[in-house]
Design a protein around this nucleic acid. Structure first.
Lengths: 233, 233
DNA sequence: GACCAAAACTGATAAAAATCATGTTTCAGG
DNA sequence: CCTGAAACATGATTTTTATCAGTTTTGGTC
């Protein structure tokens, strides 16, 4: 275990939903948590299986995706250090409705269900943070839903690129998106066919808004991308 | 005030998220709640305004909708007696991200923000129900999102009709959907153009799955509709 | 019950997006 | 460094869906 051996000293301590949790409960979580490392491509959990707790990302990147009825992947969330996952199914009392896969090597702590639930019951501050988190996710989902129903793919792709930027930021050069996603994954984030995503990315490249170098995507003109995304809010 | 003059005796007492709230808090809510009647078409609150509390429907039907960037309505939820609304914005600390409009004459109680929040802090049972509610909504939104991205309009319309049936049920005849929605509203629920919704409804009619009589929609063959919706889960 | 605006409907057309086909590049593993 | 499968890319074609234009029906109001 590296420097995140304890929750108290974890780099994400005040960056996650646990920021408002009382110290005593953080200590309890620290004692019972199980840390693990996942390699790029490894599955944390699969749609349809039962949740036994929640996961807290210490380092790394995760994608959460649904399997559509015809087997097509729909990526519904991108997660990073400090993010918590697995709580939706647990709180609903459902099985997982999405699968979680590591987008890069990831260090993650597992918090058992019983502990999580009991702390949630005893710590109204954490419960409130949790409700806020759920509300924010719901908000995001509703906005995305509206955009899926109403905006053309070009705008949605631009929006998605900006969203990736917001989520994972840039590499040291200040322009390259700091995550490795295939064209197919980008398409499954936008909600379109892979070919369409590829075609529009080339268009953006031709228009000078982005630069493509294999999986590396550089955002050259953020302002024009924002315009292409046609964002009002 | 009719028979719902008190929360304790409200017909929705054990039908809403407040089912798990402690009796003492229900009494508090009862003292501070404000009951109101809205006529069909009246607005409860508007996207962009600030929430001052939550609403609990005693009787009636409400639609919740976003305004898309180009002004097009996207209906994101249909609500009925026992449902609570307005909590999303309140818990996020945001302004309303959707507008609420009565689909028929509706009786609704307003619970002030401070009371709601303080009860939520003191009653872990209610807090848990609230988290469950949010998780369920999030789940629904994510499923809808996937379907919007991946399913053709015909399937989505069939699904929407089934959803309306689940939500509002039938009139006494056992076949007529028990809500008055315009074709445009159905389209805004499906996420398509009004003409497309009209066209496909006629198709369903031609196929003998539904019967159309003005705004009244009768579901004749539920099984075939389910097949048309291509539902796996 | 007549009137009128709004809603429902229908057909034609255009636009958007998916699919299919095929060639090219990339990159992990031997 | 070679090689083959997977990913990327691009053009052609088809399908889906939106838009436009016009007619009919509906339902609320005087």
């Amino acid at each position: 275990m590296s420097d995140h051996a304890t929750c108290q000293s974890c780099s994400q301590r005040f960056n996650s939903v646990f920021c408002k949790a009382k110290e005593e409960f953080v200590n309890q979580i620290n004692e019972q948590k199980i840390c693990n490392t996942y390699k790029r491509g490894q599955i944390l959990f699969n749609e349809g299986s039962y949740p036994f707790g929640v996961y807290c990302i210490n380092e790394g990147k995760i994608k959460l995706s649904h399997q559509g009825d015809d087997g097509k992947e729909q990526i519904i969330r991108l997660l990073k250090a400090g993010d918590v996952l697995g709580y939706r199914a647990l709180l609903s009392g459902d099985r997982y409705s999405a699968s979680a896969v590591a987008l890069e090597d990831t260090q993650i702590c597992f918090i058992p269900k019983d502990l999580f639930v009991s702390v949630l019951k005893l710590d109204p501050g954490l419960a409130f943070e949790m409700m806020k988190l759920l509300s924010d996710e719901l908000h995001r989902a509703e906005i995305k839903l509206t955009h899926l129903a109403q905006k053309p793919i070009r705008e949605r792709l631009a929006e998605t690129l900006l969203f990736i930027k917001e989520t994972y930021g840039f590499e040291e050069d200040g322009t390259t998106l700091n995550v490795r996603l295939s064209r197919e994954e980008i398409a499954n984030l936008v909600g379109t066919a892979t070919e369409s995503a590829i075609r529009l990315l080339s268009e953006f490249k031709k228009d000078g808004m982005v630069e493509l170098d294999g999986k590396k995507i550089k955002i050259l003109k953020t302002k024009e991308l924002i315009k292409a995304a046609n964002i009002q809010d």
